[in-house]
Design a protein around this nucleic acid. Structure first.
Length: 551
RNA sequence: GUCCCUGUAGCUCAGGUGGAUAGAGCACAGGAUUCCUAAUCCUGGUGUCGGCAGUUCGAGUCUGCCCAGGGACACCA
C-alpha cells in the first residue's frame, strides 16, 4: 500500500491535489473536519476507498497531535475531531494577536490597487454606488487582513463630453438665476439635480462668475465648471465617508492628459502596431486580444474617447508599481471588461494582474414594492437618502449580505426594523449583551473586571464543560479561515454569514448557561465571553460596522 | 442577434474545489423570563434545486441545448 503512494505519477498527483479537500462537513455529527481524500485516490490507486481510508487513518492522521477520534464513513470519508487541547492552543492566538486575530500574511505584501465607485461628478450617487462602495471598502479591509498592501482609489471623470454637458447645464441655470436666459441643453441632466449644485455655487460665490461689461462672453465658463466639479466631488466624498467609504486617492482623469502623456502613449501603441486609422478616427485593435470588435481611441473630431482614458489609466496604475489591479464595476459596465483585458494583453501585462469584479444591480423595496426611479424627472432615491433613512450600519451590513453576483433587493422597511427580523441588530445585540454582562459583573460581583487581564487567563486549563461551549470555541478558531476564504473568493459576505452564525451560537449559549450566578462569576465562561467579544469586534471591523456597548 | 448575471422552501438568499439525509433567515403556529438586555431562545420543513440530455462510483454544483427574468452591446461616459 505504501509503495502505491510513490507510484502516483505527476499527472494523477495534480488531479488528487486539486480535488481532495479537508473541510467542515455539512452535517456536524460527522465531526469537526472531514476529508474525501480516499475517494479521490481510489481511481488512481485502483483500490477500494474504504481500504485507502483505513491506511490513511493508521499511517497518517493518527499521528497528528491535534486530532482525536477518527472515524471512517460509508463511501470512504475520513472524519475526525479536534482534541480539546488543540482548540485551546488556537484560542490562545486570540489573546496574543487581539485585534489582529484572523489576519494572515498570504498576500506577502503585494501592492494591490482597488478602484471602485468612480461615479461621474455630474450627479448624486445612486444606490448601486453604495453597493460598490461598501463592497470595495470591505474587500480592501479583507485584502489588508490577508497581508496585501492595499491602495483605494476613486477615478473622477472630469474630462470629456459628459462633463461638458454637465457644465453647460450648470451654466444655464446659473445664468437663469441672474435673469439671463440661454436654452437648456437638450440632452442635459435633470434640472432638479443640477439646480442643487447651482444653488450651492450661488450661495458661496454669488455672481462671481459673471463677466460684466463683456457682450460676447458673459460668464467665466471654465471657472464655473471647475467649481461645479469641485462641489460635486466633495458632495460625493461626504456621502461616501458617512458610511466609512474613504479613499487613499481621488484620481482625476484630467491628470492623465498632462505633459502630453496621451501623445506619448499613442506613440508607444503605434510602435507595438496595435493601433490604426480608419474613417478619420484612431482605432485600437482590441479584437486581436479577445474583444468582440476594435474600439475607437480618438474620434474623427480629434477628441479622445473614454476608452482612451481607460488605457492611460491602466498604464498609469502599472507604472505606479501595483502588482494587482482590482476593478469593481456595476453590471451596466460589464461590456468594458473585454476591452480592458485586451489592453492589458496588448501591453503584455500578465492576465492575472487585472481582476474585474462585476456587481449586479440593486433595487429598492419599500412597503413590499419596487421603488421606481424616474431619472428624467430627477426623482431618484439616492444613496444619501438611503443612508439618512436606515443608517450606516444597516447600509453596510445589507450591502455585504449577498454575493455580488446576485441582483439584490434592498428592503428599506426591514433595514429600519429594530427587531430580530433585522440581522444587523441581531449581530450587534451580541456585542451589546456581552458589554452588558461585563457591566453587571462590575456592579454586582466581587470580580475585578477592570483589572481582569486576559493575558493571565490560563487557557490551557480552560474546560469545555458543555458541547455549546466547545462549539463556540470552535467557531472562534475558524475565523481566520473565513478571512482567508473571503479574500480568495472576493466575497465579503462570508464575513456577514460568519457573524450571523457566531451571534446565533452566542445567543443560544446566553440563553442556556449563566455567566453570573448569585454574585459569583464563572471565570471559564467569562473568558469565553471576552474572547468572543474580540472575534466579534474584529469581524465587524472588517466590514466597518459598529460594535455598540448598549442597545 | 451577440455577450454577462440570475433561476434552490410561501418570501429573501447560502450551498468556495462535484461527496454523506439540499440548508439559513423571514413569514406562520405553539412554547420559554423568581436570575447576566425577550432586539433573545426552543419546537415545527415532502423543495419537479427552471427543463431535457450528457460526463462518472457520485451532479444543486461540470458540459451542451432549451425556457424564463435582469443588464450590456456608440466616433456617450
Amino acid at each position: 500500500m505504501k509503495a502505491k503512494y510513490f507510484s502516483i505519477d505527476d499527472n494523477d498527483m495534480a488531479k488528487v491535489l486539486n480535488n481532495f479537500n479537508i473541510s467542515e462537513p455539512k452535517n456536524k455529527d460527522f465531526g469537526d473536519l472531514s476529508t474525501n481524500v480516499s475517494m479521490v485516490l481510489a481511481p488512481v490507486l485502483r483500490e477500494n476507498p474504504l481500504v485507502i481510508a483505513r491506511t490513511i487513518k493508521e499511517d497518517i492522521i493518527s499521528n497528528w497531535d491535534e486530532v482525536d477520534s477518527i472515524t471512517i464513513e460509508k463511501p470512504g470519508f475520513i472524519n475526525f475531531n479536534f482534541k480539546d487541547s488543540f482548540i485551546r492552543e488556537e484560542l490562545k492566538k486570540i489573546i496574543t494577536e487581539k485585534e489582529c486575530f484572523g489576519f494572515n500574511k498570504s498576500g506577502q505584501g503585494t501592492r494591490i490597487q482597488l478602484e471602485y465607485v468612480s461615479s461621474n461628478p455630474t450627479g448624486s450617487l445612486h444606490i448601486g454606488h453604495g453597493r460598490w462602495g461598501v463592497l470595495g471598502d470591505s474587500l480592501a479591509n479583507i485584502y489588508s487582513a490577508n497581508g496585501y498592501n492595499v491602495f483605494r482609489e476613486y477615478y473622477v471623470n472630469d474630462y470629456g463630453a459628459q462633463i461638458k454637458n454637465f457644465a453647460n447645464c450648470v451654466k444655464c441655470l446659473y445664468l437663469r438665476h441672474f435673469n439671463i436666459e440661454i436654452p437648456y441643453p437638450e440632452d442635459g441632466y435633470p434640472e432638479a439635480s443640477v439646480s442643487i449644485v447651482v444653488g450651492k455655487i450661488i450661495d458661496k460665490h454669488d455672481d462671481k462668475f459673471i463677466l460684466h461689461g463683456n457682450e460676447n462672453n458673459i460668464v467665466d465658463a471654465a471657472a464655473l465648471e471647475e467649481e461645479a466639479v469641485k462641489l460635486m466631488v466633495s458632495h460625493i466624498m461626504d456621502t461616501l465617508s458617512s458610511i466609512g467609504v474613504v479613499f487613499d486617492r481621488w484620481f482625476y482623469e484630467k491628470d492623465l492628459y498632462k505633459d502630453s502623456n496621451f501623445e506619448k502613449v499613442i506613440g508607444k501603441l503605434r510602435d507595438k502596431n496595435v493601433i490604426y486609422e480608419k474613417d478619420g478616427a484612431l482605432w485600437f485593435k482590441s479584437s486581436e486580444f479577445g474583444d468582440d470588435k476594435d474600439r475607437v481611441v480618438v474620434r474623427s473630431d480629434g477628441n479622445p474617447t473614454y476608452f482612451a482614458s481607460d488605457i492611460l489609466y491602466l498604464i498609469n496604475k502599472i507604472e505606479r508599481g501595483f502588482g494587482t489591479l482590482i476593478y469593481i464595476l456595476g453590471a451596466d459596465h460589464h461590456g468594458y471588461v473585454k476591452r480592458l483585458k485586451a489592453v492589458g494583453k496588448a501591453l503584455g501585462i500578465d492576465e492575472g494582474r487585472i481582476a474585474v469584479v462585476i456587481g449586479q444591480l440593486v433595487r429598492i423595496i419599500k412597503s413590499g414594492k419596487v421603488l421606481k426611479m424616474s431619472r428624467r424627472k430627477g426623482k431618484v432615491y439616492t444613496l444619501r437618502d438611503l443612508i439618512l433613512e436606515v443608517g450606516k450600519d444597516s447600509v453596510r451590513y445589507f450591502f455585504c449580505m449577498n454575493s455580488f453576483d446576485t441582483p439584490m433587493d434592498f428592503d428599506i422597511d426591514l433595514a429600519k426594523k429594530r427587531s430580530n427580523q433585522n440581522p444587523v441588530y441581531y449581530v450587534q445585540y451580541t456585542h451589546a449583551r456581552i458589554e452588558s454582562i461585563i457591566r453587571k459583573i462590575k456592579s454586582s460581583t466581587d470580580t475585578d473586571i477592570d483589572n481582569f487581564n486576559l493575558d493571565e487567563i490560563n487557557i490551557s486549563e480552560m474546560e469545555f464543560k458543555t458541547k455549546t461551549e466547545r462549539d463556540l470555541a470552535k467557531a472562534m478558531i475558524m475565523y481566520p479561515d473565513v478571512i482567508y476564504n473571503s479574500c480568495k473568493n472576493n466575497s465579503p459576505y462570508f464575513v456577514t454569514q460568519y457573524l450571523y452564525k457566531l451571534a446565533s451560537e452566542f445567543h443560544y449559549f446566553y440563553n442556556h448557561y449563566r455567566i453570573i450566578t448569585k454574585n459569583k462569576v464563572n471565570l471559564n465562561r467569562l473568558a469565553l465571553l471576552l474572547l468572543i467579544k474580540i472575534v466579534l469586534k474584529n469581524a465587524l471591523k472588517m466590514l466597518n460596522i459598529s460594535a455598540p456597548e448598549k442597545m
